[in-house]
Design a protein around this nucleic acid. Sequence first.
DNA 1: TTGACATATTCCTATATGGGCATATAATTC
DNA 2: GAATTATATGCCCATATAGGAATATGTCAA
Lengths: 109, 109
Amino acid sequence: MPRAATTSDAFNAVAEPRRRQILEFLVTQERPVSEIVAGLGLEQPSVSKHLRVLRNVGLVRVRRNGRHKLYQTNPETIRPLHEWTKTFERFWAHQLGRIKERAEAKNGT
Amino acid sequence: MPRAATTSDAFNAVAEPRRRQILEFLVTQERPVSEIVAGLGLEQPSVSKHLRVLRNVGLVRVRRNGRHKLYQTNPETIRPLHEWTKTFERFWAHQLGRIKERAEAKNGT
DNA sequence: TTGACATATTCCTATATGGGCATATAATTC
DNA sequence: GAATTATATGCCCATATAGGAATATGTCAA
Protein backbone atom coordinates (compact mmCIF):
# COMPACT_ATOMS: atom_id res chain seq x y z
CA MET A 1 0.00 0.00 0.00
CA PRO A 2 1.33 3.43 -0.85
CA ARG A 3 1.22 6.37 1.41
CA ALA A 4 -2.23 7.80 2.11
CA ALA A 5 -3.46 10.46 -0.27
CA THR A 6 -2.68 14.06 0.54
CA THR A 7 -6.39 14.63 0.27
CA SER A 8 -7.22 12.00 2.86
CA ASP A 9 -6.91 14.34 5.82
CA ALA A 10 -5.36 17.55 7.09
CA PHE A 11 -2.33 15.71 8.52
CA ASN A 12 -1.33 14.52 5.08
CA ALA A 13 -2.15 17.79 3.37
CA VAL A 14 -0.03 19.74 5.82
CA ALA A 15 2.97 17.45 5.47
CA GLU A 16 4.00 19.38 2.37
CA PRO A 17 6.04 22.50 3.25
CA ARG A 18 4.68 24.63 0.44
CA ARG A 19 1.17 23.95 1.52
CA ARG A 20 2.05 25.12 4.99
CA GLN A 21 3.51 28.27 3.50
CA ILE A 22 0.33 28.85 1.57
CA LEU A 23 -1.79 28.38 4.67
CA GLU A 24 0.32 30.88 6.56
CA PHE A 25 0.08 33.30 3.67
CA LEU A 26 -3.68 33.07 3.45
CA VAL A 27 -4.59 33.14 7.10
CA THR A 28 -4.65 36.88 7.62
CA GLN A 29 -6.36 37.77 4.39
CA GLU A 30 -7.98 36.25 1.34
CA ARG A 31 -5.88 36.52 -1.79
CA PRO A 32 -6.02 35.63 -5.48
CA VAL A 33 -3.82 32.88 -6.86
CA SER A 34 -1.57 35.35 -8.62
CA GLU A 35 -0.61 36.90 -5.30
CA ILE A 36 0.35 33.55 -3.88
CA VAL A 37 2.46 32.90 -6.95
CA ALA A 38 4.19 36.25 -6.61
CA GLY A 39 4.41 36.20 -2.84
CA LEU A 40 5.86 32.73 -2.46
CA GLY A 41 7.74 32.50 -5.75
CA LEU A 42 6.08 29.31 -6.94
CA GLU A 43 4.86 28.27 -10.37
CA GLN A 44 1.22 29.03 -11.02
CA PRO A 45 0.17 25.45 -11.87
CA SER A 46 1.93 24.25 -8.75
CA VAL A 47 -0.01 26.70 -6.61
CA SER A 48 -3.29 25.69 -8.22
CA LYS A 49 -2.57 22.05 -7.49
CA HIS A 50 -1.68 22.72 -3.89
CA LEU A 51 -4.79 24.81 -3.47
CA ARG A 52 -6.86 21.97 -4.80
CA VAL A 53 -5.45 19.63 -2.20
CA LEU A 54 -6.03 22.18 0.53
CA ARG A 55 -9.56 22.75 -0.63
CA ASN A 56 -10.33 19.05 -0.72
CA VAL A 57 -9.52 18.68 2.95
CA GLY A 58 -11.24 21.93 3.87
CA LEU A 59 -8.09 23.84 4.77
CA VAL A 60 -8.95 26.73 2.48
CA ARG A 61 -12.09 28.37 1.20
CA VAL A 62 -12.60 29.93 -2.21
CA ARG A 63 -14.72 32.75 -3.44
CA ARG A 64 -14.93 34.03 -6.94
CA ASN A 65 -14.49 37.72 -7.56
CA GLY A 66 -14.58 38.63 -11.22
CA ARG A 67 -11.80 36.78 -12.93
CA HIS A 68 -10.02 36.29 -9.67
CA LYS A 69 -10.55 33.54 -7.19
CA LEU A 70 -9.93 34.56 -3.65
CA TYR A 71 -8.54 31.91 -1.35
CA GLN A 72 -8.39 32.05 2.39
CA THR A 73 -7.25 29.68 5.08
CA ASN A 74 -9.99 27.97 7.02
CA PRO A 75 -8.39 27.75 10.46
CA GLU A 76 -11.05 25.46 11.90
CA THR A 77 -9.59 22.54 9.98
CA ILE A 78 -6.21 23.05 11.61
CA ARG A 79 -7.75 22.82 15.02
CA PRO A 80 -7.81 19.00 15.20
CA LEU A 81 -4.10 18.93 14.48
CA HIS A 82 -3.59 21.39 17.27
CA GLU A 83 -5.64 19.28 19.63
CA TRP A 84 -3.70 16.16 18.74
CA THR A 85 -0.32 17.73 19.37
CA LYS A 86 -1.70 19.23 22.53
CA THR A 87 -2.21 15.81 24.06
CA PHE A 88 1.57 15.58 24.26
CA GLU A 89 1.99 18.99 25.78
CA ARG A 90 2.09 17.92 29.40
CA PHE A 91 4.91 15.53 28.62
CA TRP A 92 7.32 18.19 27.53
CA ALA A 93 6.30 21.19 29.56
CA HIS A 94 6.24 21.26 33.32
CA GLN A 95 7.31 19.09 36.15
CA LEU A 96 3.75 18.26 36.94
CA GLY A 97 3.60 16.53 33.63
CA ARG A 98 6.54 14.35 34.43
CA ILE A 99 5.23 13.51 37.83
CA LYS A 100 1.94 12.52 36.32
CA GLU A 101 3.76 10.59 33.68
CA ARG A 102 5.63 8.58 36.24
CA ALA A 103 2.50 7.95 38.24
CA GLU A 104 0.77 6.63 35.15
CA ALA A 105 3.72 4.50 34.25
CA LYS A 106 3.47 2.80 37.62
CA ASN A 107 -0.20 2.47 37.15
CA GLY A 108 0.19 0.85 33.77
CA THR A 109 -1.93 3.45 32.02
CA MET B 1 9.34 15.34 -7.67
CA PRO B 2 7.63 12.79 -5.43
CA ARG B 3 6.33 13.52 -2.02
CA ALA B 4 8.94 14.26 0.60
CA ALA B 5 10.26 11.31 2.55
CA THR B 6 8.49 10.37 5.75
CA THR B 7 11.87 10.66 7.38
CA SER B 8 12.35 14.23 6.22
CA ASP B 9 10.58 15.80 9.19
CA ALA B 10 8.04 15.25 11.94
CA PHE B 11 5.19 16.61 9.81
CA ASN B 12 5.66 13.87 7.26
CA ALA B 13 6.26 11.16 9.83
CA VAL B 14 3.09 12.03 11.68
CA ALA B 15 0.93 12.03 8.56
CA GLU B 16 0.59 8.25 8.89
CA PRO B 17 -2.25 7.28 11.28
CA ARG B 18 -0.52 4.20 12.66
CA ARG B 19 2.50 6.21 13.56
CA ARG B 20 0.30 8.60 15.46
CA GLN B 21 -1.23 5.64 17.28
CA ILE B 22 2.20 4.39 18.17
CA LEU B 23 3.23 7.78 19.49
CA GLU B 24 0.12 7.93 21.65
CA PHE B 25 0.78 4.43 22.90
CA LEU B 26 4.37 5.16 23.84
CA VAL B 27 3.98 8.55 25.43
CA THR B 28 3.08 7.44 28.93
CA GLN B 29 5.53 4.60 29.17
CA GLU B 30 8.35 2.91 27.32
CA ARG B 31 7.39 -0.42 25.82
CA PRO B 32 8.94 -3.27 23.84
CA VAL B 33 7.96 -3.82 20.22
CA SER B 34 5.94 -6.89 21.07
CA GLU B 35 3.63 -4.84 23.27
CA ILE B 36 3.00 -2.39 20.47
CA VAL B 37 2.21 -5.28 18.17
CA ALA B 38 -0.20 -6.76 20.69
CA GLY B 39 -1.62 -3.47 21.84
CA LEU B 40 -2.36 -2.00 18.44
CA GLY B 41 -2.94 -5.21 16.52
CA LEU B 42 -0.35 -4.56 13.83
CA GLU B 43 2.12 -6.87 12.15
CA GLN B 44 5.51 -6.96 13.78
CA PRO B 45 7.52 -5.99 10.67
CA SER B 46 5.15 -3.12 10.10
CA VAL B 47 5.70 -1.85 13.61
CA SER B 48 9.46 -2.12 13.25
CA LYS B 49 9.32 -0.11 10.05
CA HIS B 50 7.18 2.60 11.57
CA LEU B 51 9.45 2.76 14.58
CA ARG B 52 12.41 3.24 12.30
CA VAL B 53 10.75 6.20 10.65
CA LEU B 54 9.82 7.66 14.01
CA ARG B 55 13.34 7.17 15.29
CA ASN B 56 14.86 8.82 12.24
CA VAL B 57 12.97 12.03 12.89
CA GLY B 58 13.54 11.86 16.63
CA LEU B 59 9.95 11.17 17.59
CA VAL B 60 10.88 8.11 19.64
CA ARG B 61 13.84 6.97 21.70
CA VAL B 62 15.11 3.44 22.06
CA ARG B 63 16.87 1.61 24.84
CA ARG B 64 17.93 -1.96 24.85
CA ASN B 65 16.95 -4.15 27.75
CA GLY B 66 18.05 -7.72 27.33
CA ARG B 67 16.49 -9.07 24.22
CA HIS B 68 13.86 -6.38 24.30
CA LYS B 69 14.10 -2.93 22.89
CA LEU B 70 12.14 -0.36 24.80
CA TYR B 71 10.69 2.48 22.78
CA GLN B 72 9.27 5.69 24.11
CA THR B 73 7.84 8.81 22.57
CA ASN B 74 10.07 11.84 22.62
CA PRO B 75 7.48 14.59 23.06
CA GLU B 76 9.93 17.41 22.41
CA THR B 77 9.87 16.63 18.71
CA ILE B 78 6.11 17.09 18.59
CA ARG B 79 6.44 20.54 20.05
CA PRO B 80 7.27 22.31 16.76
CA LEU B 81 4.10 20.90 15.24
CA HIS B 82 2.17 22.21 18.17
CA GLU B 83 3.73 25.63 17.79
CA TRP B 84 2.94 25.73 14.11
CA THR B 85 -0.71 24.87 14.56
CA LYS B 86 -0.86 27.33 17.42
CA THR B 87 -0.13 30.24 15.10
CA PHE B 88 -3.61 29.70 13.69
CA GLU B 89 -5.29 29.54 17.04
CA ARG B 90 -6.39 33.15 17.23
CA PHE B 91 -8.07 32.85 13.86
CA TRP B 92 -10.50 30.15 14.85
CA ALA B 93 -11.33 31.41 18.28
CA HIS B 94 -13.14 34.73 18.21
CA GLN B 95 -14.75 37.37 16.06
CA LEU B 96 -13.13 36.53 12.76
CA GLY B 97 -15.18 33.39 12.63
CA ARG B 98 -18.45 35.25 12.92
CA ILE B 99 -17.44 37.81 10.34
CA LYS B 100 -16.55 35.06 7.93
CA GLU B 101 -19.78 33.25 8.59
CA ARG B 102 -21.80 36.31 7.72
CA ALA B 103 -19.82 36.96 4.58
CA GLU B 104 -20.35 33.40 3.44
CA ALA B 105 -24.03 33.50 4.22
CA LYS B 106 -24.38 36.44 1.90
CA ASN B 107 -22.26 34.74 -0.69
CA GLY B 108 -24.21 31.51 -0.58
CA THR B 109 -21.11 29.42 0.05
C1' DT C 1 26.76 -24.84 20.57
C1' DT C 2 21.91 -25.17 20.09
C1' DG C 3 17.43 -23.55 20.56
C1' DA C 4 13.99 -20.10 21.49
C1' DC C 5 12.53 -15.58 21.62
C1' DA C 6 12.65 -10.50 19.98
C1' DT C 7 13.37 -7.29 16.53
C1' DA C 8 15.05 -5.66 12.03
C1' DT C 9 15.70 -5.97 7.16
C1' DT C 10 14.97 -7.35 2.34
C1' DC C 11 12.28 -7.97 -1.75
C1' DC C 12 8.10 -7.26 -4.09
C1' DT C 13 4.13 -4.53 -5.81
C1' DA C 14 0.49 -1.12 -6.48
C1' DT C 15 -0.17 3.50 -5.91
C1' DA C 16 0.25 8.44 -5.00
C1' DT C 17 2.78 11.88 -5.52
C1' DG C 18 4.97 16.99 -7.10
C1' DG C 19 7.36 19.39 -10.59
C1' DG C 20 7.61 20.97 -15.53
C1' DC C 21 5.36 21.95 -19.54
C1' DA C 22 1.59 22.55 -22.54
C1' DT C 23 -3.04 23.32 -22.82
C1' DA C 24 -7.86 23.96 -21.44
C1' DT C 25 -11.50 26.59 -19.08
C1' DA C 26 -13.38 30.94 -17.29
C1' DA C 27 -14.32 35.81 -17.07
C1' DT C 28 -13.52 40.54 -18.80
C1' DT C 29 -12.81 44.05 -22.14
C1' DC C 30 -12.64 45.77 -26.68
C1' DG D 1 -16.47 37.47 -31.70
C1' DA D 2 -11.46 38.25 -30.61
C1' DA D 3 -7.91 39.26 -27.59
C1' DT D 4 -6.46 39.26 -22.76
C1' DT D 5 -6.07 37.97 -18.18
C1' DA D 6 -6.64 34.43 -14.38
C1' DT D 7 -6.84 29.93 -12.98
C1' DA D 8 -7.22 24.93 -13.58
C1' DT D 9 -6.17 20.58 -15.68
C1' DG D 10 -3.67 16.92 -18.29
C1' DC D 11 0.32 14.34 -19.26
C1' DC D 12 4.90 12.48 -18.28
C1' DC D 13 8.43 10.97 -15.05
C1' DA D 14 11.26 9.88 -11.03
C1' DT D 15 10.63 8.65 -6.50
C1' DA D 16 8.80 7.25 -2.04
C1' DT D 17 5.92 4.76 -0.03
C1' DA D 18 3.18 0.81 3.22
C1' DG D 19 1.86 -3.77 3.45
C1' DG D 20 2.96 -8.86 3.06
C1' DA D 21 5.94 -12.68 3.23
C1' DA D 22 10.24 -14.49 4.01
C1' DT D 23 14.45 -14.06 6.09
C1' DA D 24 18.30 -12.03 8.72
C1' DT D 25 20.23 -10.32 12.96
C1' DG D 26 20.56 -10.13 17.92
C1' DT D 27 20.22 -11.77 22.66
C1' DC D 28 19.66 -14.88 26.22
C1' DA D 29 19.33 -19.62 28.44
C1' DA D 30 20.52 -24.33 29.03
